[in-house]
Write a protein that binds this DNA or RNA. Structure first.
Length: 1079
RNA sequence: GGGCGAUUAGCUCAGCGGUAGAGCGCUUCGUUCACAUCGAAGAUGCCGGCGGUUCGAAUCCGUCAUCGCCCACCA
């Protein structure tokens, strides 16, 4: 038995089922691929093949895959399978991201849910063990999900950002940046997340507009000093002139008043010119300890906004920080890591005294300033919103809120709008005889207080209409009546943009802390140049601008996080030793090294033989890591240092720092591995625009610095997957579609094809189940075409030459297949996945199933035509399987082996190389005409209500010799597909027949029994009208001299030809109408 | 406040200088031996408004309107 015969014998399989059993086959096929090592690096590569490499954006180990992943992975898998079939040297590198803050959050939540000890109680080491447990579970889930999707990455090369090798690369990158001076540590204002108690980067802050309030307060001038406050309109005319003993400020954050260092006005603001340089008082805290702060000028305040005067809190606001820096204003930190008002340090009186010394010019170090707690004792430990509440109340009660009288004294007291989270205090403000204010919950309470204060006065609450404007004397009475007036502090309700942590969803607090920063500005320059010079392409192009804009305005990147889960910063600290061998108090020396061993060596080398450097025997779990513990030192009798500990910085790196070296790290850097040589720079990065800054831009920066070469040639930026209403899928909205659920329901192929077909560049895709069902049906269609082929004994023959076929229908479909390959490759080359999917769909369903299968049926009946047609059918479907495989890998791999014995799996089959050269123009034209004829007949039959099953004659009235030959060759096809009983020839259309015109050939259908003359007349009239309209337009165009002169020749010719065809058709139909008129 | 994008059939969207398209939905008909997860036939569009460029505009340029998104320090 020959080998071929053996293979054939295996194909005498059971008859195929009517549908594809996705759940069973997907599992079976996935196993086949695994067993064959189909996705291994370089699998199916031809010798000397070009490399294609693509990195999986590592999913976070926080749970499971969502629709966005499914989309992203589908696109990558299409590219990967396509390149692999083309024989390229392919690497799709998978991996997982430890996702520091997100994972720590998830694990903490899980611990709470399971009733286990909280993170702090567990301690650092034990907690990290828990995270690793979680990672094992979650990572496994994710990879299993990828397998369901059909991801063809090389799982044997899977990397995790916290694995030893990768972690080592991360630390080495840090050391390299550090040594180049690109990483520095500094006390700066950073975005602080009070929930996670860590710094976060600018990118992790979401600015959201929320309803808020702005309060207006008076800061009294020192010693009751006064000045003329003058406001002018645009023409300089005085609109307000009054004597003031205060400066008014506006704030949305009253709680930060405690840390004010100055009040700033714009240098050009003449209203405040008289008091610039003077001192004013912060109107909170115990009266005897109130702080005075200077009124300064700075460009920052906008004279047209609020009062034009801004309170400057350098430690709690980014703008104020800048003003404070420029003007040497102290920055007083008010809050702790949970954004509660500080409860540490010396009592308020003492701190305030120090602050007064500072204001008076005493010099203090930053560290000393940081120890000052300027929170009044009674406010210490309060949450920031509670503190805000108290302060507003205090200032208002002190009569220093800018007050507005209620228009109607009998209205209900307006709430004072002190706010915490989720609560408002219903407090009213009443104004007494001296203009003093009472902040109370009821008018009776206010009245009681006022009477207590003015025991000799008759104070009353006005009843409706009782109090006249400005009159406080009751007519007809001998005594003065003092009214207690209702007022309210000037509080504007306005939307304010507040920063929220993107993970914690709590309001971010700007905090002055020590952090590590990466000099992004320096790194941005090569990253900008690489894209500008086209070394890396960003597609679609619109994203390039966004990329440029971000990199051009980049700030230092805060890379340290006060978390436990992550790469611990590779910096160790020891004391600073003076030349005599004594420790300099408070001074610290940092040693940056990629390992503890190297750090020890570096430190030992630095300190020399007189000082022994040891690692501390400290509890690593010490949860209070706000400050580094001081080194433990041993001294000799003179006090010189003899031993010292070396403490590692407890902070970890931002997750994005490690994912930032994903390209180099996964390929083995810093070693110069084979993979690096083969696959770097990677070919394509496929990613969502939401991580363009987080990830893409940073990879560009970091790779360019570390390797001096771009990390990718192309960056394909795709849009977001939304629900069918266009909403972002989110757990809270409950509109999340789980890709695995969809795969269970429709099969992975349908889900993948849907995603690919919706991947038009630069637009969000709205996913609906109907669409997926549609593509599931498409798979069934393909399945049944294959089933048809099998039932008709169509076996793929490796020796089949598509160019050798002779029958028109076969030549035609071969040509169409050639066209498809060109269209498909062009589309994939340009990342036009939707075009690629569309072309496949149109070809398989619209050409192969709708026409070729139907054309083949009569050909199978004919002994002369059957062999060639069977071979062609097998070849055509074979090509469909190959070309569909990147999109629908499971069903195509199943069909590949169905009814045919193959030497290998489809995943490694050759991608076709032919093109439109397979197109035979004559066959193409002929089939076009035949199909047109069939469609025209079918249309008329339907319009004339010919029963679907009835066979009718077709009368040929006149056609060209070519058309006659074509019809001759295709009579059986036409007869079958148009349900024609017999063909007749006549010189003229018989009575009661309907006329049709196809490409200038005239036919008619004798339908005397069914025809309705009136409706046939209407039909012809309508058709002629349409033709006439089009002809008129063409005529106008062609008689336009400018068109003839300026339009390209082929366009002119095309229009001429079309007009001619139109005229022919018009003549035929007009003649038919004329005949009808004679009846 | 800056930037980007969208506005095309009932719905979701392609097309982006030369005859308005697809899928879904809808209507009518159909148990013909691949497929009812199907087939055949059909209806539906001032391609957001207004200007301009061009022989020719859904497509290019202005502008307005509406809706999204991103970035941004107005206290």
């Amino acid at each position: 038995m020959t080998c071929a015969a053996l293979l054939l014998s295996g194909s005498a399989a059971m008859p195929m089922e009517k549908t594809f059993d996705a759940p069973a086959e997907e599992a079976r096929i996935a196993d086949l691929w695994d067993a064959a090592g189909s996705f291994a690096m370089g699998a199916n590569a031809r010798p000397g093949a070009e490399a294609f490499s693509i990195l999986l954006p590592p999913p976070n180990v926080t749970g499971s895959l969502h629709m966005g992943h499914a989309f992203n992975h589908t696109l990558m898998d299409v590219l990967t399978r396509w390149h692999r079939m083309r024989g390229h040297d392919v690497l799709w590198q998978p991996g997982l991201d430890h996702a520091g803050i997100a994972t720590q959050m998830v694990v903490e939540r899980e611990l709470a849910k399971a009733g286990e000890p909280a993170r702090r109680d567990l301690g650092r080491a034990a907690f990290i063990d828990k995270v690793w447990e979680w990672k094992a579970q979650s990572g496994g889930t994710i990879l299993a999900q990828c397998r369901r999707l059909g991801d063809s990455f090389d799982l044997s090369r899977n990397r995790f950002t916290m694995d030893d090798g990768f972690a080592d690369a991360v630390l080495r990158a840090f050391v390299e940046f550090y040594e180049k001076g690109l990483i520095f540590r500094g006390k700066r204002l950073v975005n602080w997340d009070p929930h996670f108690e860590t710094a976060i980067s600018d990118l992790e802050v979401e600015n959201i507009e929320v309803p808020g309030h702005m309060w207006h307060f008076r800061y009294p001038l020192e010693n009751g000093e006064t000045y003329e406050y003058i406001e002018r309109d645009a023409d300089g005319a005085v609109t307000l002139r009054e004597t003031r003993d205060y400066i008014a400020i506006a704030t949305t954050r009253p709680e930060t008043m405690l840390g004010d260092g100055a009040v700033a006005v714009h240098p050009s603001d003449e209203r405040y010119a008289p008091i610039v340089g003077k001192l004013c008082e912060i109107p909170v805290g115990p009266n005897e300890h109130r702080r005075l702060i200077p009124i300064i000028v700075d460009e920052y305040p906008d004279p047209t906004f609020g009062s034009g005067a801004v309170k400057i809190t350098g430690a709690h606001d980014f703008n104020d920080y800048g003003v404070a820096e420029r003007n040497g204003i102290p920055k007083y930190r008010l809050m702790d890591t949970k954004a509660r008002l500080r409860d540490d340090g010396a009592p308020y009186a003492e701190a305030a005294a120090r602050a007064r010394e500072i204001a008076a010019g005493a010099v203090f170090t930053d560290a000393e300033i940081d120890t000052l707690n300027l929170v009044p004792d009674e406010l210490r430990g309060l949450g920031r919103y509670e503190a805000r509440d108290r302060i507003v109340k205090q200032v208002t009660a002190g009569g220093l809120a800018v007050m507005t009288l209620a228009d109607d004294p009998n209205t209900r007291p307006p709430s004072i709008a002190v706010e915490g989270r989720n609560k408002r205090k219903e407090l009213g403000v009443w104004i007494g005889p001296d203009g003093e204010t009472y902040v109370c919950e009821s008018s009776d309470e206010a009245l009681a207080e006022a009477r207590l204060r003015h025991p000799t006065k008759d104070i009353r609450l006005p009843l409706f209409g009782e109090m006249e404007d400005g009159v406080f004397y009751e007519p007809g009475s001998d005594s003065m009546i003092w009214w207690l007036r209702l007022g309210y502090p000037l509080v504007e309700s306005k939307p304010i943009t507040q920063p929220f942590g993107d993970r914690s969803k709590v309001v971010i607090e700007p905090m002055l802390t020590d952090q590590w920063f990466l000099d992004a500005e320096t790194l941005a320059k090569p990253a900008l140049a690489a894209v500008r010079e086209g070394r890396t392409r960003i597609l679609p192009e619109q994203h390039e601008k966004v990329y440029y804009h971000w990199l051009e305005n980049i700030e230092p990147w805060c890379i340290s996080r006060q978390l436990w889960w992550g790469h611990q910063i590779p910096v160790w600290y020891g004391p600073e030793i003076d030349k005599d061998g004594f420790a300099i108090p408070g001074a610290v020396r940092a040693f940056c090294a990629a390992s503890e061993k190297e750090a020890l060596a570096k430190a030992q080398e630095h300190y020399g033989s007189t000082i022994e450097v040891v690692l501390p025997n400290r509890d690593e779990n010490n949860p209070l890591r706000e400050y580094l513990p001081p080194s433990e030192m041993g001294h000799d009798k003179q006090g010189r240092v003899t031993t010292t500990t070396l403490d590692r910085d407890p902070d970890v790196l931002d997750t994005w720092f490690s994912s930032g070296i994903w390209p180099l790290g996964t390929l083995g850097w810093p070693e110069d591995t084979d993979e690096l040589k083969r696959f770097y720079p990677t070919s394509t990065l496929v990613t969502g625009f939401d991580i363009l800054f987080f990830w893409v831009a940073r990879m560009m920066m970091m790779q360019l610095e570390l390797k001096g070469e771009v990390p990718f040639r192309d960056v394909y930026v795709h849009a977001l997957v939304r629900d069918e209403k266009g909403k972002k899928m989110s757990k809270s909205l409950g509109n999340v579609l789980d890709p695995i659920d969809l795969i269970d329901e429709y099969g992975a192929d349908a889900v993948r094809f849907t995603l690919a077909s919706m991947a038009a560049m630069g637009r969000d895709l709205k996913l609906s189940k109907d669409r997926i069902a549609g593509y599931r049906n498409f798979g069934t269609k393909l399945w049944n075409a294959a089933r048809f082929a099998e039932m008709n004994d169509c076996r793929p023959d490796p020796a089949f030459d598509p160019r050798s076929v002779t029958l028109t229908a076969n030549r035609w479909i071969v040509g169409e297949t050639g066209r498809l390959r060109e269209t498909l490759d062009a589309a994939l080359d340009a990342y036009r996945f939707n075009d690629a999917a569309g072309a496949l769909y149109a070809h398989v369903w619209g050409k192969v199933c709708d026409w070729y299968v139907e054309l083949a049926k009569p050909l199978f009946q004919d002994e002369a035509s059957a062999p060639e047609t069977r071979a062609t059918m097998a070849w055509v479907l074979d090509q469909c399987l190959r070309m569909l495989h990147p999109f629908m890998p499971f069903i195509t791999e199943t069909l590949w082996a169905q009814g045919a014995s193959r030497a290998g799996l489809l995943v490694h089959a050759d991608w076709p190389g032919y093109g439109a050269d397979l197109v035979d123009g004559a066959a193409d034209a002929e089939m076009g005409w035949v199909i047109g004829l069939i469609e025209e007949i079918r249309s008329l039959r339907a319009q004339m209500h010919v029963p679907a099953g009835a066979k009718i004659p077709l009368i040929e009235l006149g056609m060209s010799a070519d058309q006659a030959e074509a019809l001759e060759r295709n009579r059986t096809l036409v007869a079958r597909l148009a349900r024609i009983e017999r063909f007749e020839t006549a010189a003229e259309a018989p009575k009661g027949s309907v006329t049709l015109s196809v490409g200038g050939a005239a036919f008619c259908l004798p339908l005397a029994e069914v025809i309705d003359i009136a409706s046939e007349r209407a039909r012809l009239g309508k058709a002629l009208e349409k033709l006439g309209k089009e002809a008129k337009g063409l005529d106008a165009k062609l008689s336009n001299a400018a068109f003839i002169a300026k339009a390209p020749e082929e366009v002119v010719d095309e229009n001429r030809a079309r007009l001619e065809a139109l005229e022919e058709e018009t003549a035929i139909l007009a003649a038919a109408l004329a005949r009808l008129a004679q009846l």
